[in-house]
């Protein structure tokens, strides 16, 4: 049974707008309201133990979805259950089964040392002593937090605090962990430390993880499955590899020839760039294979070295977002 079930989930926000065209000292005194449709009829399931990337451009509705999943916001329409609970009605009961990290917010006590925040959370979630010690110990070891445990939270660096936030979200062994931009603003070392930690958490404890991020590195390292959302609706839900297979159809062959030569003329490939003895040949995977192309090049000139470039996941996502903006449908016919 799915641990997260979302059906036709919607959320509208009522926002006040100053009146169009109104002027003068009274302009701001009069106002009207409009509805922002942040999430519209979104449906998906997440199975226990999955690690899912929930991505989309700014304002797509990712955080809004997570807030409904955690019981912060009451949906305007649709149904959802998490670990068997209905978030908006059974918020308190569900809270023991989930953990959340909002990269932009803190859940720690600002003026207390980090360790004291953990102790308070232990009591709030009623974590038994041994389990608390074991969980905390594991986090401290794998994320190297020992040296700043006694530091008040307001003095922690972003990376240190984020490790603290993750620990805080995990002290009670949640079955589901929501991460909303957990690596925002972190350096490469801190990012990779957090990614490794999440991988091991998912592998060893079987924690289900739903992750939003703008860093495609996070997605590639962590998630087999991605859900892409834009303007409140789901664009794609399925395997990351399959997404690449469908959208990253273009390849570039980079060859170093023995000596500089004019642009090669080989079938199905166009030379994009020539730089001394190095040439870039772009081709569609559907038209020809890399092996055939290399053979064709080898017939025309002597090759010293070569490599095949794939578009990065970032390019893929960029194209999907751009395509969506133009209204091109990309729904995967057989979601993973």
């Amino acid at each position: 049974m799915a641990i997260i079930e979302v059906r036709d989930l919607s959320k509208q926000f009522r926002v006040a707008r100053p009146r169009e065209g109104a002027r003068g000292p009274l302009a701001r005194v009069r106002r009207e309201y409009t509805d922002v449709r942040a999430v519209e009829r979104v449906s998906f399931d997440v199975e226990p133990g999955e690690m899912v990337g929930y991505i989309g451009p700014n304002g797509a509705g990712k955080s809004t979805t997570i807030k409904m999943l955690t019981g912060i916001l009451v949906p305007s329409g649709g149904r959802l259950t998490v670990a068997g609970f209905e978030p908006s009605r059974q918020r308190k009961e569900m809270a023991r089964h989930i953990g959340v990290v909002f990269g932009q917010r803190t859940q720690l006590w600002w003026d207390l040392p980090l360790a004291d925040s953990f102790t308070l959370l232990k009591h709030i979630y009623r974590v038994p002593d041994e389990r608390f010690a074991a969980n905390l110990g594991r986090c401290i070891d794998t994320m190297e937090m020992a040296e700043f445990l006694r530091t008040p939270v307001r003095q922690l660096s972003l990376g240190q605090r984020m490790r603290g936030e993750l620990t805080a979200a995990l002290l009670h062994n949640p079955e589901v962990l929501y991460l909303d931009e957990p690596t925002i603003g972190l350096d490469v070392v801190a990012k990779s430390r957090i990614r490794e930690f999440l991988t091991s958490l998912n592998r060893d404890a079987g924690t289900t993880i739903l992750l939003t991020t703008h860093d495609m590195g996070d997605i590639e390292r962590l998630c087999r499955r991605v859900i892409i959302i834009d303007r409140g609706g789901i664009l794609y839900d399925g395997d990351l590899e399959r997404l690449k297979a469908r959208f990253a159809t273009e390849r570039t062959l980079v060859v170093d020839l023995e000596e500089p030569a004019p642009a090669l003329d080989v079938p199905f490939a166009t030379v994009e760039r020539v730089e001394g003895p190095r040439q870039w040949l772009r081709f569609q995977r559907a038209d020809t294979s890399a092996a055939e192309l290399i053979a064709a090049v080898a017939r025309a000139a002597r090759i010293v070295d070569l490599r095949v470039d794939e578009p990065s996941i970032e390019d893929v996502v960029l194209r999907i977002y751009a395509g969506a903006a133009k209204g091109i449908a990309i729904n995967d016919p057989s979601p993973g």
Partner: peptide, 12 residues
Amino acid sequence: GYRRWATYRAAT
């Protein structure tokens, strides 16, 4: 300074 406050109609 004037407009900042004028925005909050309900508050007024």
